[in-house]
Structure formats: C-alpha cells, structure tokens
Write a protein that binds this DNA or RNA. Structure first.
Length: 277
DNA sequence: TCTGCATGAAAAA
DNA sequence: TTTTCCTGCAGAG
C-alpha cells in the first residue's frame, strides 16, 4: 500500500541492502534505458524518502538522484541470490554482486521496480525543487510542524482534501486520511481553518504515531484493540475504522459508515462520530 | 476464472 | 473532469 509509510520502509530497506555498493542498473522494459545506462556501475551513496517520493543518491559521477514515485500500481520486489529472469514490464532493476566481508546482505542482492508513475534521474537542484514543493512529512524528524499548522489555519480547503494535498502534508494517502479524521471526530468536509488548532495538533501527532507504526509493520493499522471484533492478530477486516467500510456499522457507535467523492477521491466517514459542522 | 476497483498524481482536454 | 500508468486483490460466479 504505497502511502508514505511504504516509501519510508523501502528507503530503509534499500539503504541496508544497497548503500555503499556498486550497482548494475538496467531497464529490461526499456522505458528507463537511458537513465539506467547513466548510473549503471555507480556506487549508491544513500537513500531517502519524503512523503511518497523515494530518492537514491549516486554522488560519485555527476551527483545524480534516482527519483521514484510508485503511484497507484508501482511495486518494488527484492531478493538475494541470482536475480530472476525479467518478466513482464520491468522498469528498473538494480543488482549488487556478492560481498563476502559484509555483515548483512553478503549475497548478491537484486531490486526490481515495475509500474511506477515516476522513475527518472534528477540533478541536485531538481531534487531540491521537488522536495520544496512538498509539505512536511510526519515521518521525517525535520518536519516543520508550525508550517502545516499555519497552512491548516489559513485554508478554506476541506480538511479531507488538505490532508491528501502533498503540498500541505506529504505522505498521507486515502487510508490515513479517512482514519485520522475518524479518530479525531472531524468531518472530511470541514473547512481546514475551522478545525480547532488543538485538534489539528492532536491529528498531526497521531499521524506521526500511526505512520511510524505503519513503517514498522509494513501495513496500515489504525484501530485500537478495544475496537476490534476479535483479539490477537489484526485481520484485514479489523484494521480500519471507516476506510472502505461504507454501509458497515461504525465500530464505535454502530451508525452506517458513509462514502462520497471529495476532489475526485473516495472518502469515508461515520456521520455520528464525525458530525458535519 | 473473471470483473471491477484500489493506496496517486500528472497530463490531457 | 477524464485519461493514463498497467498491478494486485477481493468478491462474484
């Protein structure tokens, strides 16, 4: 599920697997052939995530960044040992040779990318410009909390739209949006500036907690144990309060969960727990 | 096995 | 506002 937590998890994973190693880079599908040839054979210097954007840094020859945005369909796959034969539309493949001295991932490692919205090379100024367009990311320690709060306080945009607007908050997608609004009793159509600043602060802090948990678990779980139908492992059906639960009873009050389109995206809420103001 | 929908966002119209 | 990227899953049958 590519919301911000997925991308941060990938940045961490790629860091452990690949950083410091010289990579064979190619594009079996051909759509990234030119870019792949440019960084092929270079050492990967670092990885970074901001919101839903993933960056790989190749600092040695020309200071180049690989920028990946998964979009709706994009998917990474990786493994150790000999890389599998390319199958289907494989946009990007990274392969590092075995390194016997290494403490982790000493075997050959490979990473595959298919179906991304963006897979391109950037210069450092282009990378800076990209990040400058994005709002603070709850998953980044350097997130400017005041900047988002000011934006919320000054905007007439529905809070449900602002939460998904990557210029305002980076990394929140449709699931975290619906769930954080539910958890704080806020209707998605509430004008942002009408959201109590104290409530907004609590929502932001909650996003930090929920998304960090998402990075650790590799999935989005937003329900509290008391609100789940069964104890023990969290099933798919128990993981959310309102996201994709339209027509089902609210876990807190039993009212039917509603769904509607908001700025061309499906949004879900409980009409009782999240009254329209 | 088939069908429709989905975590996103940019470009086209 | 619609189309595109073109994958994976759940639900229907």
């Amino acid at each position: 599920m590519p919301e911000g937590h997925t991308v941060h998890r990938l940045a961490n994973r790629h860091r452990r697997m690949l950083v410091g190693r010289r990579l064979a880079v190619d594009s079996p599908q051909g759509r990234f052939a030119e870019g792949a040839a440019l960084v092929d054979g270079q050492r990967l210097g670092g990885t970074e995530a901001w919101g839903k954007h993933l960056l790989h840094h190749y600092p040695d020859e020309g200071d180049v960044w690989l920028h990946v945005h998964l979009g709706l369909y994009g998917k990474f796959r990786d493994g150790t040992g000999e890389p599998p034969e390319p199958r289907g539309a494989l946009r990007l493949r990274l392969v590092a040779d075995a390194e016997p001295g290494r403490s982790s991932y000493a075997d050959p490692v490979w990473v595959e990318l298919r179906g991304p919205t963006a897979c391109e090379l950037m210069t450092s100024p282009e990378r800076d410009a990209l990040l400058a367009r994005l709002g603070p990311d709850p998953l980044r320690a350097d997130a400017d909390v005041e900047q988002v709060a000011a934006r919320v306080a000054g905007s007439r945009m529905p809070i449900g739209t602002l939460l998904m607007d990557q210029r305002s908050v980076a990394g929140v997608g449709n699931v975290y949006r619906a769930e954080v609004l539910f958890r704080h009793g806020v209707h998605p159509r509430t004008p942002s500036r009408d959201v109590d600043p104290v409530t907004w602060k609590a929502m932001w802090d909650d996003l930090v907690v929920l998304m960090r948990a998402g990075v650790r678990a590799g999935r989005i779980v937003t329900t509290e144990p008391d609100d789940r139908s069964r104890a023990g492992r969290v099933t798919r059906a128990d993981a959310h309060y309102v996201y994709r639960r339209q027509g089902f009873p609210c876990r807190r009050c039993g009212a039917r969960v509603l769904a509607d389109d908001l700025a061309a995206r499906r949004v879900f809420w409980c009409p009782v727990c999240q009254p329209e103001v």
